[in-house]
Computed example of a mutant assay.
Amino acid sequence: MKPWILGLTGGIGSGKSAVAEHFVDLGVHLIDADHAARWVVEPGRPALARIAEHFGPTVLQADGTLDRGALRSRVFQDAEQRRWLESLLHPLIGEEIVSYLAQAKSPYAILVSPLLIESGQHRLTQRVLVVDAPEQLQLQRTMRRDKASEEQVRAILQAQAHREERLRHADDVLINDRDLPWLRSEVERLHHFYLTLRGGQP
């Protein structure tokens, strides 16, 4: 029986990493889209060669690995180059995610992605869980965690999918505005519910 896929997302500072960790503790197979995005550009993978060919050697570090900062500054200023990069990477990241999730031994598996909705990765899932938190709490948590200023965090909040858009795609919403023991008990409650589902739908 192939596992069904739960998409897990949430804004910065919402607590989605804490939620993801607890699902893993409960034995659920999980892949982080950010990790998949890193794997596809590792040395020896075709994507890295294509990127170097397209942008030139300045996007590589001396050891042959991708210089993310250099690449970011190239695509940040140029929408056309960004689209080229996305059209190369998105399908590869999708394949990486799908093949990894297909190996799952748990009844369902989780795809964690901060950009689940924006990137279209929610199309790989049968159900979406959004971890949400009041904006003030998101700000406080992120400023504390990243030692960032309020302006920096607000800019990231602006750039991420708006809360309404995320919630519109959600099958389940976990409002994370209490303490960790409470959060864990909520994850366990959802986990037991998910175990009763076939293909992600009741």
Score class of each variant (00 low, 15 high):
115 L>H: 08
130 V>L: 02
59 V>I: 08
115 L>I: 10
64 G>C: 04
107 P>V: 00
120 G>Y: 04
167 L>C: 13
120 G>H: 00
41 V>L: 06
164 E>W: 11
52 A>N: 05
80 E>P: 11
61 Q>A: 06
142 T>L: 14
42 E>N: 03
49 A>T: 15
108 Y>T: 09
134 P>L: 10
114 P>K: 06
127 R>M: 07
90 H>C: 00
120 G>K: 04
135 E>A: 12
143 M>A: 05
116 L>D: 13
133 A>M: 12
72 R>W: 15
45 R>N: 13
153 V>N: 02
139 L>N: 09
79 A>P: 13
123 R>N: 06
154 R>V: 11
47 A>F: 06
53 E>I: 03
136 Q>G: 04
82 R>F: 05
90 H>N: 02
67 D>T: 06
158 Q>C: 14
66 L>K: 09
107 P>A: 01
59 V>S: 00
66 L>Y: 11
141 R>S: 03
58 T>G: 07
86 E>A: 02
127 R>I: 10
109 A>T: 00
49 A>L: 15
136 Q>V: 03
86 E>T: 01
105 K>D: 05
123 R>Y: 04
38 R>I: 12
116 L>W: 06
121 Q>N: 15
75 V>N: 01
69 G>F: 15
150 E>K: 04
91 P>N: 09
121 Q>Y: 13
84 W>G: 01
51 I>D: 15
161 A>E: 07
54 H>A: 11
164 E>F: 13
171 D>A: 08
141 R>N: 01
86 E>K: 00
45 R>W: 11
136 Q>F: 02
159 A>G: 05
67 D>Q: 06
154 R>M: 11
108 Y>G: 05
149 S>M: 14
171 D>M: 04
109 A>N: 03
164 E>L: 14
60 L>A: 09
99 S>E: 09
37 A>V: 05
112 V>T: 15
67 D>Y: 01
162 H>D: 09
93 I>A: 04
37 A>R: 06
50 R>P: 07
76 F>L: 11
125 T>A: 12
128 V>Y: 04
120 G>Q: 06
56 G>Q: 09
161 A>C: 07
134 P>H: 08
39 W>E: 10
74 R>T: 08
